[in-house]
Simulated assay, not measured.
Amino acid sequence: MSDLIQLRSPDGARATLSLQGGQLLSWQPAGAGEQLYHSPLSRSGPGLAQRGGVPVIFPQFAAQGVGPRHGIARTRRWALAHRDQGRQDALAVLRLQDDADTLRDWPHAFGLELTVRLSGAVLEMELAVENRGESRFEFQAALHSYWAVEDAARVVVEGLQDRRYMDSLSGLDGVQHSHRLELLSGKPIDRIIYGPASPLRLIELGETQTRRLHIETEGFDDVVLWNPGSEHGLADLPLADWQRFVCLELAQIEHRPVLEPGEEWVARQTVRLL
């Protein structure tokens, strides 16, 4: 059985998901090109994290816990729970739950569901976390979206004004004062921006046209903005490909949700190509 799930809505929007990692790899809105970056050097397989698309971060962000970096979800094989094509959309639901391997890394019984729906110029993603055990647990989560661009130095982000952030490169705190955050050519950026997320706009200022992604959230409080810069040294990323993407990801990092046995937490992101 192939690890890849292909979705196509009646209006021509397309997406590809991978059961390995429970990961959206590709999204092409109706009448438009690819919106997600996926590294040509990325490898897929048990225990490996793919570079690109939209990895699911759970139950910890980065090294903010005692388990594997960015958690256990992005390196496990998920199952296809449901797939459907409606009159105006297409969707798939992927599921992951605890097993002997996950319990060694994180000793809690859980269930994850990732729902992906596409229609026209809109992509909807929902992440649900269920406590299947007999004791409470807390966690962090994120949809680590790699948005494809032609040149990261031509990208600005709107919607972060007056938000607190922590610069993960320097360890210093700050506040985003300006209306637009501009990425500097070749310079890395790694920020966790805290607080209720207002609608975000990722804008690529092209030479002939401007591309805009409008991103809304329900349930995610934080935002991560990351690009490794020109001297990244990442083995699974071509040297020049730092220019080809910007990670603007919705996350729940600062205030960790706490689930009692039987409880569920749900968060969503809705992305529209304008």
Rank of each mutant, 00 (worst) to 15 (best):
P196E: 11
D101Y: 13
R164V: 13
M166S: 14
V246Y: 00
R164Q: 12
M1T: 06
A121L: 12
W147K: 00
P228V: 09
P257D: 06
D151Q: 07
S145I: 05
L7Y: 02
L248I: 01
H232G: 10
Q161P: 05
I192F: 10
P10R: 13
E113Q: 14
G45I: 01
H70T: 08
E138I: 02
E130W: 03
G47R: 04
R163H: 10
V54K: 10
V157R: 00
Q209A: 10
W78M: 11
S42Y: 09
E260W: 03
L127A: 05
L160Y: 06
I72V: 15
H38N: 10
A100T: 09
L41P: 08
R136Y: 12
Q35T: 04
S18P: 03
V266N: 11
H38M: 06
G206P: 06
H144D: 05
G45F: 05
G229R: 09
L202R: 00
V246H: 05
G120L: 04
I189K: 00
Q60C: 12
L205S: 02
R43I: 10
V149C: 08
Y194S: 14
W265G: 03
A128R: 15
Q20G: 01
L80H: 06
Y146R: 04
S145G: 05
P10K: 13
E231D: 15
A109P: 06
I5H: 04
D98K: 06
H177C: 12
D222E: 09
P261T: 12
V56D: 00
V116Y: 08
Q140K: 07
G31L: 06
N131P: 08
Q35D: 00
F245Y: 09
L112N: 07
L239D: 14
A62C: 08
Q97S: 13
S135R: 14
R191N: 07
S198E: 11
V116F: 04
H108M: 10
Y165H: 10
L96I: 15
S39F: 10
L36H: 01
F245Q: 02
E138F: 13
D221R: 15
W265I: 01
G21V: 15
L96M: 10
L114Q: 13
Q243I: 02
F139R: 04
G229Y: 13
T16L: 14
R244L: 07
W27P: 03
N227I: 01
G52R: 03
S230R: 15
R244V: 04
R212L: 07
S26A: 12
S170V: 15
W147P: 01
S2D: 12
R244E: 08
